[in-house]
Design a protein around this nucleic acid. Sequence first.
DNA 1: AGAGGCAATTTTTTT
DNA 2: AATTGCCTCT
Length: 777
Amino acid sequence: MGDLTPPQRAAALQTEGPLLVLAAAGSGKTRVITRRIAYLVGIGVPPWQILALTFTNKAAGEMRERVAHLMTQHERQTRGLTITTFHSLGARLLRRYAEVVNLNPEFTIYNSGDQATLVKRVIESMQLSTSNWPARSVLSAISEAKNKLLDAEGYAARAMDFYAKTIAKVFAGYQTALRAAGAVDFDDLLVLTAKLLRDNAQAREECNARWRYLMIDEYQDTNHAQFVIASLLAGKGEPNSNGPNICVVGDPDQAIYGWRGADIGNILDFEENYPKARVIALGENFRSTAPILAVADTLIRRNTRRKHKDLFTRRAGGDRIEVTICRDEHHEAALVTDWFKSLHEHRGEGPAVEAGIAWREMAVFYRTNALSRVMEDAFRAAAIPYTIARGTAFYEREEIKNALAYLRLLANPSDNVSLERIVNTPTRGLGNTTLARVEIFARQNEVQMLEALRSSARGEDSGINARAASAAGKFVELIDGWTGGGTFLGASVGASLAELVGRVIKESGLEEMYRKQAAVSKSEPDDERVDNLAELISSAREFELEFDAASDPAEAAPFAPETPPLLGMLRGYLESVALVADADTVDPSQGAVTMMTLHAAKGLEFPAVAMIGLEEGLLPHSRAAESESQLEEERRLCFVGITRAMRRLSITSAKYRTTRGISERTIPSRFLGEFGQQHVRVSDQSDAFSGNDSTGGPESWSDNRSGSQSLAPHKASNLSSLAGPLPYAVGTLVRHPQFGLGRIKSVVTGSNARAVIDFQAVGTKTLVLEYARLQRV
DNA sequence: AGAGGCAATTTTTTT
DNA sequence: AATTGCCTCT
């Protein structure tokens, strides 16, 4: 422990009773947690009595690895140690206590796409218009309720107006449909776990008996359900103690999930909940240079709702933060690209020979995912290797979703959303008409869709014709072939998960379907989808290897003892796929620049960081402009971004930005003016003719800012010259960036004025003038 | 039944 | 600009 600072050591050694560690950014928080776990085991606590909860799999994995590393150094066992995410823990507990919470132990975890499909179906079945009741907003209302531990009944009881009453009905219908499909959504994983622990003494006592030391990371981002889970898992503690052994670690200044129901009050009120709690603040920063820290500190001091703690470093020196005003997003991307290139190649000036910074040590942060595209193009053009932290992206590809839908149906035959997705993909003669009839039949006989298809195939009259019945028979046979008729046993059923996934992809006809599509489309054979399917098999193989290694005798119980190993593995695999986070895919071993949202950046650090899009409406985001508390959260988001940087930080703000096809004048982010002047170097590169650098600090553009606000809204130049009050004259010759030269044949005026244009190269097209980037010739 | 084309809509962050 | 959904044509 000699290498820890006194407060770090105090936090690691304080094993008994409630402990709140207020860990500033870069203060060695993970180090403290891992050392604490190692210390606990060192003084004789059995590892299986320790439970550490994180938010992402990546954080859990990293912690697990570091603990394992520490322990093997001291030749200690980690067997039974539980380091996992709230959601994974919920999933495991719910499988184990499935009957208690009235849940199918085979349950599938529905992601937001599945949820949307399901609510939409419920909304339609209630004869409501999906345009008045968009799935997204209905779901967010439901999610908000769930995070407060309100169920459909509770929500209905509080619903006063028509809107809330309707949501309540959809909520109830959605919940019924979820359960009918043997499915739970993300929120259910927390809500049902909280209820289980609250209402079932046996489950609670079993957990309390097993886990005697509880640790929670990123506590500032827990929502109410998570708070309840944590409190119940912690229990009351020994009669004469200061309270339970619960150690929470977090930083109120890094709370960025308020929109997801996270309650910053959980950490601010920790001392009220546990009056005898000890509080340890870790304020010393070991990550960033002094100027970076000073800027972060100056910014975050603007927040009123916070507990101030001094951020300090003992290191001296370091470059000033670069703030660059650029013309537009392309210019911005070019500046970042150049900067990264110079950092990479540059071997330092003068006596201090500084090695070039590796690609993997650089990152680009942005507020919204949409900003990544232009950066991506620039990196590709400049041949800079990059990766984007989007964990779900792979699993959201159509071909992968289809393959997974097959697998999910195997693991849970009631999963109707999955069945509907693939029953006719590739097409096998089970179209809408047939399915509608089978669904009626299924409802009348109170059986699952898959069963209804089976009956139809057997010749039972479900109202479908013979041809459809035979198609249904083939489909059911296919499924049974993979599951061994549901047993997951037998010679024809592969013993390996990867083998099963491979069989499904092949025998379902998915592979062939995409191969054919690739052959037909365009000139170049586009095998991307086929390749992705192959990658899915590899991911299953990888999981298989880890599944055995991670399998833990103390946790083996969740699945019923008679569960065939292959089925157990399949469920585990699907669960891991369902719970991936964006940040989970950040792999520092890759020699590539990482691009990610500010949210995904939390908990990471990079020697060189570029933050782009520091503009009003983007950061702070326009949707967060309603309240002061939302604005403060945006400021914290900015703070999180800044504090990820170890040595170099460059921030850009573009004067014009194209969103959804239209370029608009922007206003520099107010946060730029909150950095202070001392440690910032501002350079305005937006004027092509000047290389003017002003070192005056952010104040120097405050005039600029008010100036730009007073400017009349300025639409894209190409459009203001065209879409004016005068309609295009028929016969005008125009040029389109894609379609080339064309002549206007007719024009329809109005709010979405459009023109029919006859292009030389591609023939006649109807274009909306506002979006078509036309030039008069 | 199914594919392809056209039109309307899109605007945050994520387990 | 890009995606999604609806409608029509084969």
